[in-house]
Structure formats: structure tokens, C-alpha cells
Nucleic acid binder design. Structure first.
Lengths: 195, 195
DNA sequence: GTCTATATACCGATAGAC
DNA sequence: GTCTATCGGTATATAGAC
């Protein structure tokens, strides 16, 4: 009996995900994953034929989990601003765990050097987020909680960019400021009260 | 007589800089640089003993050039909003050239896996930018062009994060939206007119 | 499903000739 | 300043035994 939770394939994805968030696609190897999981390198290949397979699968899982979180926010919150604040919290929670970056933020930076199937998965993540945020900002504007004349699509791009960028600036600048502070400051600026 | 402009060391840095902006620190090799410059791998080592030396030197040059650009903006523009718009243009110009990322944005994402001397250079870049932006936003607030109640330091973090993030979201999401659009939208939201 | 062993290629870096 | 040759290490990936 093994006390480690989850199948080997799941544990491989968990470890690879954390390594990508800290070091990027080119910054980790199958051997790194194998050591952390407690198996040998060829055993990793048994579960994922290539590195591209592993990361593409892992990116899809990441996006699906995000999709679930967005659905949960829609269910739990009615107020548009509360939904946007909950969205910021998704990024803040990731970053709070050892300064981990968004998986697709890290991969997005490396997109020009990624296998096509991985880059496709990254694009899907951003599309999902922008669509959800656009709807959320449209609601916020219609309810009068956000009064800028900017379009909802532009506000979605702005918030997503600010959150992804805050992780990188926070890490690179060794700052205590992260996506939580940056995201909430932006929401205050956009809301009626911030003026 | 050689028609290529600049010393070999300069050309090595130019090529390495472009490779970092497209692929990141772990995404290029001395051999890649050598081929592009038209020399052999050991000749690159003659100019820069290690990869860390090369990238740290290149990052310093990048920051110094940015510092010159900021000084030029201060000289050419008096209006605080015009200065901020010119700042956005610095990122937009970089991104407009084949979708290149900010050197220190890319390296910032990889910071956890970088040699110390490189990570130090990245932190210097962000510190320089945040200091300049903080002063610019303070001026903009004192002149009444920016009326949010948020502190200038927070607004500096917000704009820098939005610009760095816009490059990554634009690249990863294969979007036509980049730092120019995102940065200018933010400035409109923060300015008196945008309300 | 995991292992040992291995193929093949590339990495950063160095020695030493020209 | 550039080269050929090479070192030692590691990368992704596969073959085949258990």
C-alpha cells in the first residue's frame, strides 16, 4: 500500500505542473519529474509518450480546472464586482503558493518555442478567460458598477494582462506586490467608488 | 572588409537578445548564437566566458538603453499623460518587431531558474521602471490629469504589469491585442476623460 | 507498470593550434 | 580572434527484460 495519493500519471502531471510554474517548459526534464515522483525516467515515458504530450495534457487539465472555478464563481456570486474579485483571487491563490506563475502565463511567454499542440492549449486557456471576463465586465457595466466608456472586451484584456504581468513583475522584481494587489487596485480604479 | 555592423561582441549580444525575447534563457544555446553571427561556438566563449555572463551583460545593456529612453521622454515631454503615453510606446515598439517580448519580462518569468547575476539584473530593470512610473503618476495626479485615489506606486505597478502581461497574453493567445492597446486603454480609464 | 541499458543528439565549457 | 577537437554532462526517447 502506497500512502501517496493519486495514480502515477496524476502524480507525474502534478509534479510537471509545479516545475513548469517555477522553471518553464525548457527548464525541467523527464528525469526531474521521475525523481520527484519516485520512479525512473522510462516509467514517465510509459504514461506520456513525449514531453509535448505530457505538457499538452497538463495544460488541458489546467484549463478545465479553471473552467470549473469560473462556473463555481458564477453559481456562488451574483454581483458582477464580486465575481471579478473572485476571479482575481484565483490568480492570487496560485501566486501565494511559493510564488508559482500561471501555467499558461509561463507557457505563453515561451509560446514561440513550444510544440504546436502545447501552444494550442495555451491559446485555448486565454480564449476561455477572455470570454468569461468579457461577459463579466458587460454585466458590471450594465448594472452601473463599472462606468468606464471602454468596451468590455478591452477591460477583459486589461485585467487578464495585469494579473499575468503582476506575477512576472513580482517574481522578477522580487517584490511583495503580486496579482492580488494589482488586480484589486485595477478593480477599484474601474469601479464607481475609485473615482 | 566586413559589411556587418558592430564588433563581434555587440553582434553576439544582439543575436542573443533576440533569441531570449523569442525563446527565453533556456531556449537558446551558444551554438544558436554562433550560427546566426557566422562564427563558431568557442568564439562566443572568447567574448563571454559563460552563458550567465553573456545574458547578465545583455540585460544590463537593455536596462541602460531603457534608462536613456526614459530620460529622453522626460526631456521631450512636459505633460505627465504624454510621458505615460510615450512610455507605453516603448513596449509597443518592442512587441511590434516580430512579437518580441520585453527581455526582462521573459527573464522575469524564468527568474526562479536563472543564475543569480542574471536575476539581479532583471530586478534592477523593474526597480528602474517602477521608480520612473511612480514619479510620472505622482505628477499626473498633482496636475489633476489622473484622479484615482490609488497611490502612485500602485498605479506604477499596475501599468508595468499590464504592459508585460499584454505581451504574454497577446503571444500566448495569438491575439492582435498587444501592449499598445492594453496600455492606452488603461491610461484612458485612469484619466479624467475616461470616466 | 517499472526497470536497466542504451541510442542519439545537444548542452556549456575548455585545450591548444593558427 | 577564430578555429578544430574534445570533455563531461544531460536531454528526449526507445528496446527489451521482469
Amino acid at each position: 500500500m502506497n500512502t501517496v495519493i493519486g495514480s502515477t500519471a496524476t502524480r507525474v502531471m502534478d509534479v510537471a505542473e509545479a516545475l513548469i510554474q517555477q522553471r518553464g517548459y525548457d527548464g525541467f526534464s523527464f528525469d526531474d519529474v521521475a525523481r520527484a515522483v519516485g520512479i525512473r525516467k522510462p516509467s514517465v515515458h510509459h504514461h506520456f509518450r513525449t514531453k509535448a504530450d505530457l505538457v499538452a495534457t497538463l495544460a488541458r487539465r489546467y484549463t478545465e480546472r479553471f473552467e470549473s472555478s469560473l462556473a463555481a464563481i458564477d453559481t456562488a456570486r451574483r454581483d458582477p464586482m464580486a465575481r471579478l474579485e473572485a476571479y482575481v483571487l484565483l490568480f492570487a491563490t496560485t501566486y501565494a503558493k511559493d510564488g508559482r506563475l500561471c501555467v499558461c502565463g509561463m507557457l505563453g511567454a515561451e509560446a514561440a518555442a513550444l510544440p504546436a499542440q502545447v501552444a494550442d492549449g495555451v491559446a485555448d486557456f486565454f480564449r476561455l478567460n477572455l470570454d468569461w471576463l468579457t461577459a463579466a465586465f458587460r454585466d458590471a457595466q450594465q448594472s452601473g458598477r463599472v462606468t468606464t466608456t471602454q468596451g468590455a472586451e478591452a477591460l477583459a484584456q486589461l485585467l487578464l494582462s495585469a494579473l499575468e504581468g503582476a506575477m512576472i513583475v513580482g517574481r522578477g522584481g522580487r517584490s511583495s506586490v503580486g496579482p492580488a494587489a494589482v488586480g484589486n487596485h485595477l478593480l477599484v480604479c474601474l469601479s464607481k467608488q475609485g473615482r
